[in-house]
């Protein structure tokens, strides 16, 4: 467990009487890209809310860098960078002001904040947009700002909840390439939930969540070989069909 960036054990959650997640056990290792695949309503966003402690689990446990998230809440949240499904930027503030607000919520001192904002905006090709209001940016740029913001405090685990939804194909491709570089170069672990199957690459670690249960956790190309399929679409369809039966 101590090697895992995130270790989830027998996690369960329900809204009222309706079970949403049951017996979820997942382990994420450093520097890998995990694609969390599942249809709408599978429990992906609920799982994310449990990881970032917007909700408390009803059973099981979560450990980040070996520490229980409920006992070491501050430590656990400090390791997380989060991009939510809905945009959470303040449209009337500038890009730099949005990032500065996030930095202050992380308790980052002013001098380091300015340096990190410059670094992240440069990395995402947004250095010249720092003083623009977010309202003036297009959807792709806003998403990039959100990822830059999530990386500002140098988290160990980046959570992306359907982060590419609503973006055009070129922007999605560029973003997906960039995110995998973050894993390879910076050693960041990424857990990215999506229902867009074409975003999952053969070298990704694949986690399939169906009806609140983990149906698969394996490297994508190994899973495809084991099931004798050639594409992620075929793999996913096969799992979905067997689940329906």
């Amino acid at each position: 467990m101590s090697d895992a960036v995130l270790a989830i054990e027998q996690l369960g959650f329900q809204y009222g009487e309706k079970p949403v997640l049951s017996d979820i056990s997942v382990s994420l290792q450093q520097g890998k890209y995990y694609a969390l695949l599942g249809p709408n309503g599978a429990g992906k966003s609920t799982l994310f809310s449990l990881i970032c402690q917007l909700l408390r689990p009803l059973s099981g446990s979560l450990h980040i860098m070996g520490k229980n998230t409920q006992q070491h809440t501050r430590f656990a949240l400090k390791q997380l960078g989060i991009v939510f499904q809905q945009s959470t930027l303040d449209l009337d503030l500038t890009v730099a002001q949005n990032l500065g607000y996030h930095a202050s919520l992380q308790g980052m001192p002013g001098a380091i904040t300015r340096q990190r904002i410059d670094e992240e905006l440069t990395r995402f090709g947004l250095a010249d947009r720092a003083k623009d209001k977010v309202r003036a940016l297009n959807g792709g740029h806003r998403r990039r700002v959100e990822i830059a913001r999530a990386l500002l405090h140098k988290p160990r685990l980046l959570l992306l909840d359907e982060a590419t939804v609503g973006l055009d194909q070129n922007t999605r491709d560029a973003m997906n390439t960039h995110l995998r570089e973050l894993c390879d170069i910076e050693g960041i672990t990424i857990l990215s939930s999506t229902h867009l199957i074409d975003e999952v690459k053969p070298n990704d670690e694949l986690i399939v969540l169906l009806k609140g249960k983990i149906k698969l956790q394996q490297r994508c190309k190994e899973a495809m070989a084991a099931l004798g399929v050639e594409t992620v679409q075929q793999l996913y369809r096969q799992m979905h069909v067997s689940e329906e039966r």
């Binding site: 949240l77 400090k78 939510f84 499904q85 607000y101 919520l105």
Partner: peptide, 11 residues
């Protein structure tokens, strides 16, 4: 709108 989550996920 979801922006409350930014505040509530601060350490």
């Amino acid at each position: 709108m979801g922006s409350m989550k930014v505040l509530l996920t601060s350490p």
